[in-house]
Write a protein that binds this DNA or RNA. Structure first.
Length: 427
RNA sequence: GGGGAGUUUCCCGAGCGGUCAAAGGGGUCAGACUGUAAAUCUGAUGGCUAUGCCUUCGCAGGUUCGAAUCCUGCACUCCCCA
């Protein structure tokens, strides 16, 4: 198969190269189709999050360029914890946690890479590290790594300067990752490792080891870490990380995360995280300057990434939820759809009989669902025009919910202000 | 050990014996505006079976027709001198 793209040029055009080893040698090795390129993922949780998307997308580009992506799961390294980019010692995971995490992460990686049409290798460094004895490792690997080199790495230096320092265990992490690289070059003839810029030290350690042990040229590319213009980490919100697993972060919240990025961040993300052609991206940048209010970039970005991670159905549900959360009529939606859209929203069940006769005072419903802490607060909200039933404003403090409000379904959507929702279910 | 100052509603902080559920600011919540941003403006902000009733001003008593405000004791905090 012919190469569809010059991988390195593609990376460069999208601002994905922070540092790389000798570009000419790298380009030459990548000149043959079917080359294997790897990135590692440590299973620190049972789901990847938005921060991992860069690496995943890099591997997709590897596939798109006619090569074969290799994803390495850190069954071994995950037991240690990478000190890179961390300010303090990690807590160790138990073996069971680790196994569960690996299973979850592997499923996600396969889901995101296997539809590229290329052969995808998903391997676990636990598989080749497990049988290796400590003495053996020290003789075969440790012997070839100069301490000065290890101490010179930023990840180590910055930690040594701190009060907490770092343990011998984390210090050794680098050796494991270096050995991974050499092992993969043996087993799969994989000679390029890619990762975030915080991985440069670990990658070069592997390259150095390959030269010493095998006299082999290995290559590395790091991409800039994605950060937001306000300085916070991409994918972190006040409410926590944005995960790829829909059980942790609903497709709606995932979609909204991208929609809410500011212009500069959205511009950078659409370049680095999507597969849209560069001229379309340039077009979006022009639109953004001309009419920032339209938020075309954010919409396109959210759409692309939600479809990629959650599929077409996830995108549809996220869009429906968005429409509803911004005032669309709710009457037409059935219970199942509502349940899906409002998956993140607290709900409260009532006996259907409370709707009989005079019905349930709206004030009571607001208090019972937790939308208002007290009935007085509920009254205030209603008086000030901040109370909605199925997205229709109710300004009457004495309003009572009856069968007429609920209609055919059994769920009522209550809302306080712009964005606090609660479901009332009448069973 | 001696002397002084203080403890107020989510936070800071004002508070004259009656007009105090208690100024002002912050926060929070609503509304307007807006690009689902930021800023800004407006209103609200103890509870309730609500034109009234109940509970709150460190804790426990007391004086008074009436106390966050006066008195006594207790607890805690801070400052100064030894």
């Amino acid at each position: 198969m012919a190469l569809t793209t010059d991988l390195l040029a593609d990376f460069e055009a999208r601002g994905l190269v922070h540092q790389s080893t000798d570009a000419a040698a790298l380009r030459e090795w990548l000149g043959t189709p079917g080359r294997r390129v790897y990135a590692g993922f440590d299973p620190t949780a049972d789901s990847l999050h938005v921060g991992h998307l860069v690496a995943l997308m890099l591997l997709r580009r590897v596939a798109a360029a006619g090569h074969e992506p290799v994803a390495v799961l850190g069954g071994a390294t995950g037991m240690i914890g990478d000190p890179s980019g961390r300010s303090e010692e990690r807590n160790l995971l138990s073996a069971e946690e680790l196994a569960a995490n690996i299973a979850g992460v592997e499923r996600q990686i396969r889901g995101l890479l296997e539809n590229t049409g290329r052969t995808v290798h998903v391997v676990n460094n636990g598989d080749w590290m497990r049988g290796v004895g400590y003495l053996e490792f020290l003789r075969d690997v440790g012997k070839h790594v100069p301490l000065a080199q290890m101490l010179g790495k930023d990840s180590v230096k910055s930690r040594l300067d701190r009060d907490g320092g770092l343990s011998y265990t984390e210090f050794s992490y680098m050796l494991l990752q270096a050995w991974d690289f050499v092992h993969l070059s043996d087993a799969l003839d994989c000679r390029v490792q890619i990762g975030g810029s915080d991985q440069w030290g670990n990658i070069t350690a592997g390259i150095e080891l390959g030269r010493r042990l095998r006299a082999r040229d290995l290559h590395g590319i790091t991409c800039p870490l994605l950060t937001k213009s306000d300085g916070t980490k991409m994918g972190k919100t006040a409410a926590g990380a944005i995960w790829l697993d829909p059980r942790r972060t609903s497709p709606y919240r995932f979609y909204q995360y991208w929609i809410n990025l500011d212009d500069a961040d959205a511009g950078r993300c659409i370049e680095r995280l999507t597969e849209l052609p560069l001229d379309e991206i340039r077009g979006l940048a022009d639109l953004r300057t001309a009419n920032p209010a339209a938020r075309d970039t954010q919409k396109r970005l959210a759409e692309e990434l939600t479809r990629l991670v959650h599929g077409e159905a996830g995108l549809t549900s996220a869009r429906q939820a968005t429409a509803v959360f911004f005032g669309a009529e709710i009457g037409a939606l059935d219970d199942a759809t509502l349940a899906e859209i409002f998956a993140d929203v607290p709900s409260r069940e009532f006996a259907r009989t409370v709707l009989d006769g005079d019905g349930l005072p709206l004030v009571d419903a607001f208090e019972a669902t937790g939308l208002s802490p007290t009935k007085s607060a509920a009254r205030r909200t209603i008086e000030q025009g901040g109370a909605y039933v199925n997205n229709r404003r109710v300004a009457d403090v004495t309003h009572r919910l009856t069968a007429a409000d609920v209609g055919g379904s059994s769920t009522l959507v209550l809302r306080s202000g712009r964005k606090s929702y609660a479901l009332a279910r009448f069973l």
